[in-house]
Amino acid sequence: MFIQIEPTSDIPIYTQLANQVIELIARGQLQGGDTLPSVRALASDLSVNMHTVNKSYHELEHKGIIRIVPKSGAVINPIVQDGITSDNRRRIIEQIKPILAESLVLGMDPEEIQKLVSSILTHLKEE
């Protein structure tokens, strides 16, 4: 179960890390109850500061994707089955909206955007 980061990217490393973990969960490679490596182990493997990994884990915890359990570490929460909460929905809309607006401004037409979204979704589901 590999994750990869790009140190020179504009996206901060802790966000890249959180995104990679979320993607692994969406693909079903990480499942509810699985644990993530300790902060020290992952930071050493990726040669990054422990604060970076810690920040990433706390962001995931804040979003409700993992829970941090004393002694067992970071444990993945099962994928939510009974629908998204209104708070989370609001946050997602807030994040998607500027990206969609930017796509329109940069010349994508709505149909193309819809196609792109469904192709990404099939890609995530296929493994």
Partner: peptide, 12 residues
């Protein structure tokens, strides 16, 4: 080339 780093969550 774009430089990347990888790690395996199960390495340890």
């Amino acid at each position: 080339l774009k430089q990347i780093r990888v790690a395996d969550l199960q390495s340890h």
